[in-house]
Write a protein that binds this DNA or RNA. Structure first.
Length: 273
DNA sequence: CACCACTCCTGCCCGC
DNA sequence: TGCGGGCAGGAGTGGT
């Protein structure tokens, strides 16, 4: 489901509801989501701890506790929200009971691909080690991008999904960022010109910042903790718009498959050197 | 290393 | 209506 704008929206909305809360108990329905840890172990570790901060790194959600960190990833279909009492919704997979109040931090995940792990030591969170730049960062130098792409002969679009370049770009914003930068998604990453790298270092934060301002995108079922749907899907440049006219050159938007994922682009104008 | 195919899941939508 | 195939916002793995 979510890419960076959606995850950042979740984090911002969750923060006021959970920071300062005490974890009374925790239950996990799908042990696979915690591997290599176990529900019993994670429950034991986080019970009685206080949530002191909610942060994000790439698409990972970091619930910082007074001892250790709970690291969650929503993957394709995960959602995270606080319920004031009430009964569980369909497809909830984890429940963290908070105090004070009868509040539940619920993790709903239809496809169960999301992950949950506990790390006692903040310095040693393996998933975060290899992550690249934050895509909202506007200070990435074009030359540094070109360096980072030097060894990559694959087409630029699937390379943008590699979280060690920028951490947080997913399939939607990879296509849209390349449209804004007027770059053909099929160009080998290591053949991008310095000008193209410069445009990309501008378009990535621009596109993601704009999407964040709209609360992200809601395609099938993204919903923020406060129950709001994102609205950036109304502003997609090319993503999910196969056959529609390009807003820049009025060419027809195409869909192709790269590395088993859909790519959308305008062949008419995404070819600037 | 880089790359590619494949895998984990469930649900929805489309065409027959 | 029912069924099968394809597709979905992600990322880790194992083989070459």
């Amino acid at each position: 489901m979510p890419e960076l704008p959606e995850v950042e929206t979740v984090v911002r909305e969750l923060r006021p509801h959970v920071v300062g809360a005490l974890i009374k108990s925790a239950k996990f329905a799908i042990p696979r989501q915690l591997l290599p840890q176990t529900p019993a172990l994670v429950s034991r570790r986080i019970r009685g701890r206080k949530i002191v901060a909610v942060n994000r790194r790439g698409k990972y959600i970091l619930l910082k506790l007074d001892h250790g960190t709970l690291v969650l990833h929503l993957r394709m279909s995960g959602r995270l929200y606080v319920r004031e009492g009430g009964s569980a919704l369909d497809h909830e997979r984890a429940w963290i009971e908070l105090q004070p109040g009868a509040r539940t931090l619920a993790f709903r995940d239809v496809r169960t691909l999301g992950t949950i792990q506990y790390y006692p030591d903040d310095a040693e969170i393996p998933a975060l080690r290899a992550l690249g730049w934050e895509p909202l960062d506007t200070t990435v130098a074009p030359g540094e991008l070109r360096d980072r792409l030097r060894s990559r002969s694959m087409a630029i679009k699937p390379v943008l999904l590699d979280q060690s370049i920028w951490a947080g770009i997913g399939n939607i914003y990879a296509s849209d960022s390349l449209w804004v930068a007027e770059i053909d998604p099929r160009v080998p990453a290591n053949r991008l010109s310095l000008r193209q790298c410069e445009r990309l270092t501008k378009s990535v934060p621009a596109v993601l910042t704009r999407a964040l301002g709209q609360g992200g995108s809601t395609l099938r079922d993204f919903m923020s903790p406060d129950g709001m749907e994102g609205s950036y899907q109304k502003h997609f440049r090319v993503y999910d718009r196969e056959g529609e006219p390009c807003s820049r050159c009025h060419g027809t938007i195409r869909r192709i498959v790269q590395a088993q994922r859909s790519t959308y682009f305008c062949p008419g104008c995404q070819n600037r050197r």
